[in-house]
Design a protein around this nucleic acid. Structure first.
Lengths: 341, 341
DNA sequence: CTGAAAGCGCTAACAT
DNA sequence: ATGTTAGCGCTTTCAG
C-alpha cells in the first residue's frame, strides 16, 4: 500500500545512491537536461523505476522558483454557467493548449471574499506560476490584487475600455458591425437591436458596433430601436414583444446574445400574423444556445478555441518574461449564416 | 507593481529582523501557535503588515510535509455534466465544508491518460494532501493509482459492490425501495421500472431496491416490467412508450433517474387517452432536472449537501491518520412527494 | 516564552 | 560528462 505518509517516498538522493551517481546527474535525467551520457541516463532511469521515485514538488518549487501549475479562476457563483459552451469550450481549449507543457491546470472557484483572500495567498505564495481569469465582473478586485502581487494574469474579456491587465477578447464591436452590415446588405433598413446589460463593457461594445454599421451606411438609428436586455432568452422575448408593439416598421433585429436572439424569434412566432413582414434576427454567440435550440438562427460566432489558446500563449509569455507590460488581443469573429437572415 | 519575479517577496527572516525577534517566533505567530506573548505577537504582525509578507508555500510544504490543498477531480469528459445540480451542489458544499479550514480547493479535469499521468505525479509529488473523486467510471484506474501511492482519497459513489476505496454514496437501494413501497402503499400493484445502464453499480442498486420492495410486499415482479434506460430523458420516453405498448396493465413506474421519469411522463402524456388509467411515476433525483422542468414529479431526493460535507470529513480524517482503512458511508435519501404520485 | 540550529528534497552554479 | 556544494524559505525540535 504505497507510502504511509506523504513525504515518505524515496528521495533523489536515494536514487543517486542506488544508481551510483551524484544527485546532480539524477536531477538532470529527471529534467531531461542535455549533456548526460546515454548509458548513465539509463542507469538512473532504472533506479528511478525500481524505487518508484516521484520528485517532491514542494522541494522542486522551492529550489526552482516555479510551480509548474497555472490556475483557471472562475469568479462566477453560479456553476451552471460553466456548462455553457462558451466556458466549457474555453476550459477545454486551455487544457489542450497545456498538453505539451508540464503545467498542471487547476480550476478554482473564487466567489466569496474569504475565497478571494485564500486564493490570493495561494497565488502570491507561489503555488501557481500564473492565473487565467474567466467571467470577471467590473467591480471584482481580484485582477488588480493579482497584478499588484506580480502574478502573471490573463483575463477572458475586459472590464472596461481601458483595461490595465492582459486580456483576450472577441472583437465584439466588429462582430456586431458585421452582423448589422449583413442585415443592411440584404436590403433591410429598419434594424433594431436588443442589447446586453449596458453596465457591462461587452454589451457597450456590441451596441457601438451596431451604431457604427448604421452610421457607415449613412442610416439613421432611431433611439427607440435600442432596447436593453440582460442576455437571457426571457429578456429577448420581452424586448422583441415590446419592439413589435412599439416599432412596427422594423424589419430586422440584432440581438447581443444568442439567447436573446432565440427569445426574439420566439416572440416573433408568437406574434404570428400580427407581424406583416418577415423580420430577420441575428444573435451573438455567447452561449451557443441558439445553435442547439434554434438551428435556424444566424449568429456571430466567437472563436472559442482560439481564445483559450491565446490566453495560454499570452500567459506563458508573461511568465517567461515578467517584465512585459500588459497586452490586449481581440480575436476576429465569424458570421455564421443560417436560414433566418 | 509588487514583486517582479515570484520568489522576490520578503522572507520570514526579514520579518524576524524587522520585528527584532527570531524566525521561530515569526513562524509561531503566522501559524497561530499558542505560547507567544501578546506584545511580541503584535510586534511581529506589524512587521508582517509593513513588509506585506506572504509565506512561501513551497517552503512551507517542504518543511511542514503538507500542502494545505485538496483536489476535487472530475473524470468526466463532458463539462456540461457539471452544470447538473448533482455536481454543482456537491462542489459547492465541498467548498463550504472547507471554509473553516485553511485548505485550498482545486478542481481538476482528468480525462486523458496524459492528464491522469500528470495528475498522479502532482498528487504523489505532495501538492495536495488528499483527493476527492467525482463521477468515477468502473474501468477508471485513477482511484487505485492514488490509493497505491498512499494519497488519501474519497470517492463520490462506488464502482462496484466491493469497493476498496473510501466512498460516500446515497442509499440507492433504500431510496428505490422507499419509492416503490410508496407506490404500493397508494394501492398500485403493477409497478414497472426503468433502470439506468445496468453496467453501472448505481443502476444495479436501484433495480435491487425495486425488487426488494416488491418482494417484501409479497408481490411478483414480472420480468417484462423492467426496461433498461441510460439515465437520459430520451431513454425514459422510449422505455415508457414501450411499456405502454407491451404492458398495458401497469399503473405505476419507478424510474432510476429524474430525467428518465420526466421522459416517461412525457410519453404518458403523448399517449393520452390510449392509457386508460392514470400511471404514477417516481424518479430518483440525479439531476434535479425534473424538479426544474416538471415540478409535478415525485422524486427520491439525494442529500447532496451532506454528501459533500461527508466526503470532506472522511478525507480530513484520512489525512489526519493515514493508518485507517477505507470506510464506506451511505447517506439516507428522502422521498419528496409531489402531485403525480 | 523565545532564539538558535537542523533539516525538508531539490535545482543550479561551480568544480572537476 | 558528472560530482560537489550552496542555498531556496520554512517548520520544528531543542536549548535556554
Amino acid at each position: 500500500m504505497g507510502k504511509q505518509r506523504p513525504g515518505a517516498g524515496p528521495t533523489l538522493e536515494q536514487v543517486a545512491a542506488l544508481a551510483g551517481v551524484g544527485r546532480g546527474t539524477v536531477s538532470r535525467v529527471i529534467n531531461n537536461v542535455a549533456g548526460v551520457k546515454e548509458s548513465t541516463r539509463r542507469t538512473v532511469q532504472r533506479a528511478i523505476a525500481e524505487l518508484e521515485y516521484v520528485p517532491n514538488l514542494a522541494a522542486r518549487s522551492l529550489a526552482g522558483h516555479r510551480a509548474d501549475a497555472i490556475a483557471l479562476v472562475m469568479t462566477e457563483p453560479d456553476w451552471r454557467k460553466f456548462a455553457e459552451p462558451f466556458f466549457s469550450e474555453t476550459i477545454r481549449s486551455v487544457g489542450d493548449a497545456l498538453t505539451d507543457t508540464r503545467m498542471q491546470l487547476l480550476l478554482t472557484q473564487v466567489c466569496t471574499s474569504e475565497e478571494r483572500k485564500r486564493f490570493v495567498e495561494y497565488a502570491r505564495g507561489g503555488r501557481v506560476d500564473g492565473v487565467l481569469l474567466m467571467s470577471v465582473h467590473a467591480e471584482d478586485p481580484l485582477p488588480d490584487m493579482l497584478a499588484d502581487a506580480g502574478v502573471p494574469t490573463v483575463m477572458l474579456g475586459r472590464r472596461s475600455g481601458d483595461e490595465s491587465i492582459t486580456y483576450v477578447d472577441a472583437d465584439n464591436a466588429g462582430g456586431a458591425r458585421s452582423a448589422v452590415t449583413h442585415l443592411l446588405n440584404s436590403g433591410r433598413r429598419a434594424v433594431a437591436t436588443i442589447t446586453g446589460p449596458l453596465d457591462m463593457y461587452v454589451a457597450q461594445c456590441r451596441l457601438r458596433g451596431y451604431r457604427e454599421a448604421l452610421d457607415r451606411a449613412g442610416l439613421y438609428a432611431k433611439p427607440s430601436w435600442v432596447v436593453e436586455g440582460d442576455f437571457t432568452e426571457q429578456s429577448g422575448r420581452t424586448a422583441m414583444a415590446e419592439l413589435i408593439e412599439r416599432e412596427p416598421e422594423i424589419d430586422a433585429v440584432f440581438a447581443a446574445s444568442d439567447s436573446m436572439a432565440a427569445g426574439a424569434l420566439n416572440a416573433l412566432r408568437a406574434a404570428g400574423r400580427r407581424v406583416p413582414r418577415d423580420v430577420a434576427v441575428i444573435g451573438f454567440d455567447d452561449f451557443l444556445l441558439a445553435q442547439r435550440t434554434d438551428p435556424t438562427l444566424t449568429t456571430v460566432r466567437q472563436p472559442l478555441q482560439e481564445i483559450g489558446r491565446t490566453m495560454v500563449r499570452l500567459l506563458l509569455e508573461e511568465m517567461e518574461d515578467s517584465g512585459v507590460a500588459w497586452r490586449h488581443v481581440s480575436l476576429r469573429t465569424e458570421l455564421v449564416l443560417r436560414d433566418s437572415a
